[in-house]
Design a protein around this nucleic acid. Structure first.
Length: 968
RNA sequence: GCCUGGGUGGCGGAAUUGGUAUACGCGACGGACUUAAAAUCCGUUGGUCUUACGACCUUGGGGGUUCGAGUCCCCCCCUAGGCACCA
């Protein structure tokens, strides 16, 4: 009996061998086709690398090994994202210099990584906090500066009072600091920015070029938040000022009843009248004091103040009041909006509160789905009323049942030319419903348009419907004519009953809006009361109205983005200093390339943040004081450091040129090796790192430094591994599982195979330590089977004839195909289950038939099995490979080719369905035709039972799958 | 509120273009080996009814299309993630 599998001995044995043979060092100059297999580099903030790292690394490594077996030259580098807040905070907590804690943490992470058996090329590590790396971070800054993409401006920024630094929008989660969870406040500061907004359109458009998870593409698109609209100028009445508003719904402009400026808007002071000054000032101060969360809280009731001035709607020349309100954001669009309460929920809420007029300018259009307008027939325009009638004493409403048309609805009817709709409605109720005394008649907040085909008249109707509310005074009733009674049968119902019974969608809608006492209609529709634009549909009106504005030079079409420029300055110590010098004479002067890196002073008394708005570097005299590179005069250095995301935005570009200190990217190498072929990492980086990295690639492309503008062609995310309790792992919950403990007990081959077997790679899920035994059994089964074959240790007494050889061949060929396809599409779990099936089948055959005579076939089969298993269990398979008598590593072999003919089965079971139910299974030849199968089925007793006395109406045969019979 | 994914046995999860739902693994039960246990191996394992043959039901719920629906269409519920006063 072969030796039991000992992971400790075997895994460390091969890790040593591989280190010696340098098997994972990539020859970047090789002629073989390249494959850049990248994982997101870890952040060594002090904790162990966790299960999540183990998960993504395992997936990426299996994929990389599979690609290598398929003839690619794999480059799988690794590094450490070691600058930034968490690393610095960790050092502060420990009371040591971050340089020291970072190097300890890296050493630790490295140790972990080396036991994980991944094919990392450790010879090309990057560490972002080393001067030989951040020299290039600063170089990158200079390149962006040269292109005008790095600039300084005074602007409101996110300030984290706990980290005492500015944060990018991307680092603020629901108003809290992403790192320390302190509440973020707005501060006005002079800051360095990268102009990512210049690339907004390309960042959206080029998503078409990449193979990324659809959800991540959408996430980036939403984050960038492109919206097309128009910017419209509005003169301020009795003043020379004019204001500009941005809207995506210019089609609603005739419904504008006021204008709102953000409280910070510079025009506020200019338009505020003397009597309103006090109120406005008070409001401004109150708005400023609020934190971002308070201000953006949706529960908060809207507030605002009238400025005393009016703006003129260029479309109709009407004056509308100018208000200020904090529901308008200064940072988006023009910081001013036209308010159309009838068609915008926020404006509606505001208008209700401050009693501002609500004017409808868009009418919803309902197309009757059961009777839509027919093509090629002109619309006939009609005016009509739809009437909601309320009972005189109860909370009930009148339902009209029309036996002739079969629908249940509200009362409705036509309005003759010149007739008042309210009167028409009242008349109709008296004559058709019979109720005589009306207490109240009024219009409902919105009217609408119905479109349908009127079959009895042969015309398409385009009906302007006024929606009218009638409340009866009492129950006085005069019997309608017989004729009317045939058309209308009325009954009283509660709200709920009405909503249930009404069969016409438009009537139902009216009923709902009335019950909700009006709402803004935010959908598209047809324009009403909009002068020359009346009748147009929203889409078309938008175009025409924008053209109209452009002609009048009162506005233009405009695109706005949710995305803001990337604020990159941090008032912290542990980062790459921004390479800028301020000279009294020459102003802002970039540090010349030859002077890079601007080294972060290592000896510093206190590297903790001060909270003064200036970073700790400001107090290091030797650092700050310098000479101007232009004029040689006295000058001072910028003391902010760069956001960590700048470090990580280009690390993948640096890997192939590690060791070259004179160039960031070696031209030849970069042209050969980039872009990245496969990138594996967490989905939480989609709106930060991945967006920034794409932007930087595009900027470098424009600077002619790169020949591609999309850095990551393929992207796959690993799901999140949760604690055994199904909750997110965290120290405070005490449910953290450290991969090293698992690896120590079971070995990394078992660990990585298990974690990939648990479920779909993108899904993740709870870590369940119980299931690991299944993988252990599987791999040990493989181990003993392979050992048996390699030892040629067979029971020679058994008589064998090799008749099972074909089954052995088929088994392995099927596995080769399935496992390969599954790894290619990141379906590791099903790849592993196919391997299990294969091992189980071979094991069964081996035990049953003792492959004495077919030893060559068996050996060959086990070799193939070993190769296709090697991406998952690299150590164990290497050991087996050696014991099979091979001298070259299993990882340098080729993925076996499968034989197409051996994949197919000659006989298959087909299901026989009778009226949709499976009643019989037939063993047939794969090539059998419908006729044969039908004959076979008819011969079956079971089938005969179901066919007795019945006739076969229809036969459907799906080759090799099923036969479906319809009988009656 | 809007945009994405999900919802399948006791559990993790499979299922090509609509074509035998529950692969593979865990767990559970029964058996073999053992003085015994562990390990290993073999068998059973969606539910209800039935002595049995078998019948019926079953992929979050309700409707539909189809010879046939986990898969397609409509409505609803739950859940994870993202965005959210973005005009």
């Amino acid at each position: 009996m072969a030796e039991k599998y000992n992971h400790k001995r075997i895994e460390s044995k091969w890790q040593e061998v591989w280190e010696k043979t340098k098997i994972n060092r990539t020859d970047l100059t090789s002629e073989k086709p390249k494959f850049y297999n990248l994982i997101m580099f870890p952040y060594p903030s002090g904790d162990y690398l966790h299960l999540g790292h183990g998960y993504s690394n395992s997936g990426a490594d299996v994929y990389g090994r599979y690609k290598a077996l398929n003839g690619f030259n794999i480059f799988m580098p690794i590094g450490y994202d070691s600058f930034g807040l968490p690393a610095e905070n960790f050092a502060i907590k420990k009371g040591i210099h971050p340089r020291k804690s970072v190097s300890q943490n890296i050493e630790h992470a490295q140790k972990q990584l080396k036991t994980w058996g991944c094919m990392f090329d450790f010879s090309r590590e990057v560490t972002t906090s080393e001067p030989n790396y951040y020299k290039w971070t600063q170089w990158l800054f200079l390149k962006l500066y040269e292109q005008g993409l790095a600039y300084q401006k005074e602007s409101p920024v996110n300030w984290c009072p706990k980290c005492m630094t500015v944060l990018a929008n991307e680092q603020v989660k629901d108003g809290f600091c992403e790192r320390c969870e302190a509440e973020v406040v707005q501060k006005n500061m002079k800051q360095w920015f990268f102009k990512i907004t210049d690339y907004a359109d390309r960042l959206i458009k080029d998503l078409d070029k990449v193979d990324w998870p659809e959800s991540s593409v959408t996430k980036q698109r939403n984050w960038i938040g492109r919206s097309e609209g128009v910017q419209m100028d509005m003169p301020v009445a009795d003043s020379k000022e004019k204001l500009s508003v941005f809207t995506t719904r210019i089609d609603t402009v005739y419904g504008m009843t006021y204008v709102v400026l953000a409280p910070e808007h510079p025009l506020v002071d200019k338009v505020t009248t003397a009597d309103q000054k006090k109120e406005v000032e008070k409001y401004k101060i109150q708005a400023q004091k609020q934190t971002e969360i308070e201000r953006q809280s949706l529960e908060k009731e809207k507030t605002g103040v009238f400025t005393g001035s009016y703006a003129i709607n260029p479309f109709n020349g009407e004056k509308v009041p100018i208000w200020i309100a904090d529901y308008v954001l200064f940072g988006y669009g023009t910081g001013a909006v036209m308010a159309v309460p009838a068609h915008d929920e926020r404006d509606f809420e505001f208008a209700k509160k401050y009693d501002l007029p609500i004017i409808q300018s868009i009418a919803p259009v309902f197309v009757d789905p059961t009777n839509p307008p027919k093509d090629g027939i002109e619309d006939t325009v009609r005016h009509g009323v739809i009437v909601l009638v309320k009972h005189w004493s109860e909370d009930k409403y009148l339902l009209d049942y029309s036996p002739k048309f079969g629908w249940k609805c509200l009362f409705c009817g036509g309005v003759e030319d010149g007739e008042d709709p309210l009167e028409a409605a009242a008349r109709e109720i008296r004559e058709e419903a019979g109720y005589q005394n009306i207490k109240e008649v009024r219009y409902m907040p919105l009217h609408h348009i119905d479109r349908f085909h009127a079959p009895h008249k042969g015309v398409n109707r385009y009906a302007h419907q006024k929606n009218i509310y009638i409340e009866l005074a009492d129950g006085e009733y005069v019997e309608p004519t017989e004729e009317e009674k045939e058309l209308h049968q009325v009954s009283w119902h509660t709200k709920e009953e009405m909503l249930e019974q009404i069969t016409l969608v438009n009537h139902k809608y009216i009923f709902e809006t009335e019950l909700m006492s009006g709402q803004a209609w935010t959908g598209y529709g047809a324009l009403v009361d909009s002068a020359e634009f009346t009748g147009l549909l929203s889409e078309e009106a938008k175009k025409k109205m924008a053209e109209w504005l452009e002609k009048k030079k009162a506005g233009e079409t405009k695109v706005n983005y949710r995305l803001h420029d990337w604020s990159i300055g941090r008032q912290r110590y542990w980062g790459a200093p921004i390479p800028i010098i301020y000279c009294e004479k020459c102003g802002v002067v970039p540090v010349p390339e030859k002077d890079l890196p601007v080294e972060l002073p290592e000896k510093i008394k206190d590297f903790r943040p001060k909270g003064t708005g200036k970073g700790p570097l400001a107090s290091v005299k030797e650092f700050v004081e310098t000479t101007c590179p232009k004029c040689g005069g006295k000058a001072e250095r910028e003391t902010d450091t760069m956001d960590t995301f700048v470090d990580s935005s280009f690390y993948y570009l640096r890997y192939p040129s590690v060791g070259n200190d004179s160039e960031m990217m070696e031209k030849k190498v970069i042209e050969k090796w980039l872009p990245v072929d496969m990138y594996v990492g967490g989905a939480e980086h989609v709106t930060m790192h991945l967006l920034y990295a794409r932007f930087i690639a595009k900027a470098l492309y424009d600077a002619k430094l790169l020949k591609f503008d999309e850095p990551f062609l393929k992207l796959r995310h690993q799901g999140m591994i949760l604690g055994p309790d199904g909750k997110k792992m965290s120290k405070s919950k005490g449910n953290v599982v450290i991969p090293d403990a698992v690896i120590k007990e079971h070995g990394t081959d078992i660990f990585r195979t298990y974690i990939l077997f648990m479920g779909r790679f993108e899904d993740g899920g709870p870590w369940d330590p119980k299931g690991i035994v299944g993988i252990k059994r599987f791999l040990e089964k493989y181990w003993s089977l392979a050992n048996l074959i390699s030892a040629e240790n067979f029971d020679l007494d058994q008589s064998v004839d090799g008749s099972q050889d074909m089954i052995v061949k088929k088994t392995i060929n099927k596995a080769i195909k399935k496992v390969g396809e599954d790894i290619e599409s990141f379906k590791f779990n099903t790849a592993i289950s196919s391997l299990m099936e294969c091992v189980n089948a071979l094991n069964f055959l081996e035990m049953k038939y003792k492959p004495k005579q077919s030893i060559e076939l068996w050996k060959n089969t086990v070799e193939k099995l070993t190769i296709i298993l090697s991406p998952f269990a690299p150590h164990m398979t290497e050991e087996i490979w050696e014991s099979l008598g091979n001298t070259e590593s299993v990882h340098l072999q080729s993925w076996p080719k499968y034989d197409k003919d051996l994949i197919k089965d000659e006989t298959v079971t087909v299901a026989v369905q009778i009226n949709g139910k499976v009643r019989e299974q037939l063993l047939i030849n794969v090539e059998a035709e419908e006729k044969e199968v039908l004959e076979l089925a008819k011969a079956s007793k079971k089938v005969q039972n179901y066919l007795q006395g019945k006739e076969i109406k229809k036969v459907i045969y799906i080759k090799g799958k099923l036969l479906s019979l319809v009988v009656s």
